[in-house]
């Protein structure tokens, strides 16, 4: 589903190279995990896939279902089924979460040529998803992410992921800041949609999340490259030994 080939990325304004020929494939139905030391470029990779403007791709390509998405605007990529759960979700003052959700859902529907959701349909969907994630209704009336706790922000990302029904979801450290109950709920959400129509790329530092979402593949990232790929057992090995074996590889 997601095919990243020889990706080279630098900061647009500076000469700082962050991704150095990164190659990675995520197949339909696959849950892939990326682990790697701080600053190795994991978030950068997720931003570049989603189309954040601060980065410049100097070489390589990113294909989503065979289509190179690097020339597409972020909103077009979203409409094509790409979702990024941010490591640091943004606050939007004055905009009620409900308003934001409706705007986002309808914007994607519009781009896909679908009719807008009716208000009752929308409310039904939101209430159902919010209940599953243990998000209280009054939170949906508050401005998006403003004053939300770290864990609440992460839950809100998953709520959006659930409602937008992307085919390719990238989760950047969604587990950091989540309590055990929320972690299980998030894992359930991912596991429930583990089917050939969906794929997940899960960025994490901790084995704990992978206990609940058993990854099909684990990639180790260091200095802007994937330096090792293995199965779920690779995460356990990293948990035990840390990254020292991989630090010099790049």
């Amino acid at each position: 589903m997601l095919d990243i080939r020889n990706l080279h990325v630098k900061i647009a304004d500076e000469d700082k190279q962050i991704l150095n020929g990164l190659t990675l494939k995520v197949h339909r139905g696959e849950v892939a995990a990326i682990m790697g030391p701080n600053g190795s470029g994991k978030s950068t990779l997720s931003y570049v896939i989603a189309g954040k403007p601060d980065y410049e791709v100097t070489d390589g390509e990113v294909l989503l279902d065979g289509v190179n998405i690097l020339e597409m605007a972020p909103d077009a990529r979203a409409a094509a089924g790409l979702f990024l759960a941010f490591q640091y979700p943004m606050e939007i003052p004055g905009v009620a979460t409900m308003t934001f959700l409706k705007a986002a859902m309808n914007a994607q529907r519009k781009q896909r040529g679908q009719a807008e959701l009716t208000t009752p349909d929308f409310i039904k969907r939101v209430n159902k998803a919010a209940e599953l994630l243990g998000i209280p209704k009054d939170m949906l009336r508050r401005p998006l992410n403003v004053g939300f706790s770290g864990g609440e922000k992460k839950r809100m990302e998953i709520l959006q992921m659930t409602l937008l029904e992307p085919k390719m979801s990238i989760m950047d450290e969604t587990d950091s800041g989540l309590d055990i109950d929320a972690l299980k709920i998030v894992a359930e959400g991912v596991n429930a949609r583990r089917d050939p129509a969906h794929a997940f790329l899960v960025i994490t530092h901790y084995q704990r999340l992978l206990d609940y979402i058993k990854p099909d593949t684990v990639h180790v990232m260091s200095r802007g490259q994937i330096v090792k790929t293995g199965g779920a057992e690779l995460a356990l090995e990293l948990e035990a030994n840390g990254y020292r074996d991989y630090q010099s590889a790049a």
Partner: peptide, 16 residues
């Protein structure tokens, strides 16, 4: 730009 990007990642056009 970060706020705009966040909204656009959810499917909103730059203008919206």
């Amino acid at each position: 730009e970060d706020q705009l990007f966040y909204c656009m990642q959810r499917g909103l056009s730059a203008e919206d």
